[in-house]
Amino acid sequence: MKTKVALVQGGYTGEAEVSFKSAAFVYAQIDKEKYDVFPVTISVDQWYHQDQQGNQYPISKEDFSFQREGEKISFDVAFIIIHGVPGEDGRLQGYFDMIGLPYTSCSALTSALTMNKGYTKAVIQDIPNLHVAQSVLLFNEHRPEAVDLVTAKLSLPIFVKPNAGGSSIGMSKVTDWTALKQALDNAYDAENTGQQVLVEEFVTGREFSQGIYRDTKGELQVLPATEVRTTREFFDYEAKYTPGLTEEITPADLNESQKANADALIKEIYIRLNCKGMVRIDFFIENNTDKFYFIEINTVPGQTAQSFIPQQVRAAGKTETEFYGELIEAALQG
């Protein structure tokens, strides 16, 4: 009997478009000789499986199953590839925990915590040799005085971004105080981000993104880092998803000391946040000091052919088929 895998895609936010692209790539790579893979779309209006012929089958929310020609199809494991709500913020994980279905991502608690950039920094900031930029965390109640709170504590340039959410939606770089109010409004008003804003001082350095996962033996495997160089002011939504705006170097050109330090800190972040499955950690290495500055963690990283994780898997000498098989088997082991 093949293992039945629910490839969960879609979501409730604008990141659904990216999720469908990621899921299509994962579907194409998973070993069909070993796994029966069923794409399952989750949207605000409906949950359903759509087969290759375009037939749709509603998913029962009682046990995440569906009926096909009188047969009940239940899953052995869920491969979550929803970016944002509800696949990355712990909601879906909590549901799967309640019905007893294993899944490939972090737990409900870790997923909820890491969607909140400010709370994540609070948990990891005392890790030795890890640095976090000076920041101000703003809630909706702070909105009337937000400009004053930021200018009193931070120095330009700064990044203003929603405290939850992804794909750099609602994010701005501010180099002049006159632009702060508009940047704050953009971040506060970004869809499905909870009206919380994180403002951080700019770190001058090289930007990297690096994946890590736990293999079927329970051992942590750090993938080769990717260096991100963009022609944009910073790595924003357009830079992420518009071809030609960003240069991505995998594996990154790091000396032995830089690589060893980054690998060790990424492992410690993974452990401290009690992560599972694959995650991606973004960080700066500051110019002249080589200090490691944590940016953020992504617990459901993009999985298109051009995405960081597949690039890093290939650089590590693995195929995506092997990698996704490892994630599924590790999830089944619990």
Rank of each mutant, 00 (worst) to 15 (best):
V132P: 09
L273F: 06
S209K: 01
D31M: 12
T120D: 07
Q134E: 15
Y27T: 03
G118W: 10
Q134S: 14
V37E: 00
P224F: 05
A133C: 09
E71T: 02
G94E: 02
Q53D: 14
Y188T: 11
T204V: 14
T319E: 12
Q210I: 11
Y12F: 15
F159Q: 09
G218L: 14
V132T: 09
I30V: 14
G87A: 08
D185F: 11
L138F: 12
K72S: 08
D36W: 03
Q46E: 12
A6Q: 00
S111Q: 03
I297V: 15
F292G: 06
P251Q: 13
R214S: 03
K276S: 10
D63Y: 11
S155F: 06
T120K: 01
D63M: 11
F38M: 07
Q333P: 01
T319F: 12
C275S: 02
G218F: 10
N288D: 14
Q182G: 12
A164Y: 06
V136G: 05
I297Q: 08
K4N: 14
T151N: 13
V199S: 09
L245C: 12
V44F: 13
T250Q: 11
V147Y: 09
Q311S: 14
G334H: 10
E88V: 07
V313G: 07
V37F: 04
A24I: 08
K173T: 09
V77W: 10
E219F: 09
D63G: 12
T242E: 08
F323G: 02
S167K: 06
Y293K: 00
L113E: 01
K240M: 00
D282I: 03
E256Y: 12
K181M: 10
F284S: 00
E238C: 00
E329A: 00
K181N: 15
L130N: 02
V174M: 03
P102K: 15
P86Y: 07
E268T: 05
E69L: 05
F283Y: 15
Q9C: 14
V203M: 03
Q333V: 15
S22Y: 05
D148R: 14
I328R: 00
D185V: 13
T289F: 09
S167W: 03
T216C: 12
P162R: 08
D282M: 04
E219N: 12
V203A: 04
F235C: 01
W47H: 01
N192K: 15
Y27R: 11
N255L: 02
T226W: 02
A330H: 01
P224W: 01
P310I: 10
G100Y: 07
A315L: 06
C106Q: 02
V5T: 13
K161R: 13
T289S: 15
I271F: 08
I269S: 01
K72D: 00
V136M: 04
